[in-house]
Design a protein around this nucleic acid. Structure first.
Length: 248
DNA sequence: AAGAGTTGCAACCGCGTGAGC
DNA sequence: GGCTCACGCGGTTGCAACTCT
């Protein structure tokens, strides 16, 4: 049994706490969170420190709204991997699993509401709405399982629980072409907005980020990913490369 | 202007996993 | 091989900010 030293703090972080955590991470690195939590005297758990670092204080984080490319990527990767948020996040440099998870939740909520609305307004037109797909992100429809079954929560898309036939179906969909939003469309979009490449936007809120020696890649890229990357669709590789400052 | 409802996001919790002993 | 500990992940909650009536 471990002695719990004083009361462990919970809830929102203060700026002082952030600064303290940042300075200790600079010394100890972004591992050994329990040690950092203890040594820093923050009265936070290691878990809490890690989360704060990963989701808010990490120097490579992007801020602000998801771009349409990022949104497309999330949709594509989610259709492929399900609720593997951290894995998806690795393909979106600067975005965290938490952020993507939150985005997805919001997205699904909106989708569900729109569906509800269209159902109530035109109950006798079962598939007419999907035919209206255009290049706007709101109309991207990957036919998520939950929307079909309707018996799970609207943001639970199956994810890791997605049944195998469904997974295969989505893989196949990616292979053959979507019919909803083709990869060609995505390529076109990318070509059109090449100069609008996402730049890290580490301004605005507190961002105590000196030029640290952290490899930003580490958070969003693993060895496994490097291998996996070659198997991914062109748009993902392209997007990832752009964000990592490579040139294709 | 104020209360109710909705949205977005930060943070917590529980569980699984892997490393070290 | 079994145990403990630390870490990472996905699900969930709480609340501030925003929008609507």
């Amino acid at each position: 049994m471990k002695m719990v030293q004083e009361e462990t703090r919970k809830g929102p972080w203060t700026e002082q706490e952030d600064l303290r955590l940042v300075s200790f991470v600079q010394v100890f690195g972004d591992r050994r969170w329990d040690s950092i939590a203890k040594v820093s005297g923050l009265n936070r758990t290691g878990k809490s420190c890690r989360l704060r670092w990963v989701n808010y204080l990490h120097p490579g984080l992007k801020r602000g709204k998801m771009t349409s490319h990022e949104e497309k990527l999330v949709l594509e990767l989610h259709s492929k991997w399900g609720n593997r948020w951290s894995r998806i996040a690795r393909k979106l440099p600067g975005r965290t699993d938490n952020e993507i998870k939150n985005y997805w939740r919001t997205h699904m909520r909106k989708t569900a509401q729109e569906k509800k609305r269209s159902m109530s307004s035109s109950p006798s037109s079962p598939s007419s709405n999907s035919s209206s797909s255009s290049s706007t992100i709101t109309s991207v429809d990957f036919s998520f399982p939950c929307q079909n079954t309707g018996n799970s929560s609207f943001y639970d898309t199956g994810g890791s629980q997605m049944i195998e036939p469904a997974r295969q179906k989505f893989d196949a969909v990616e292979e053959i072409d979507t019919g909803y939003y083709s990869m060609d469309d995505i390529w076109k979009d990318i070509a059109m907005s090449e100069q609008n490449t996402i730049q890290p936007v580490c301004n605005g809120t507190f961002m105590a980020s000196p030029t640290w020696e952290y490899s930003l890649d580490s958070l969003w890229n693993t060895e496994e990913d490097e291998q996996e990357e070659s198997k991914l669709s062109p748009v993902i590789n392209y997007f990832h490369a752009m964000n990592m400052g490579k040139h294709i």
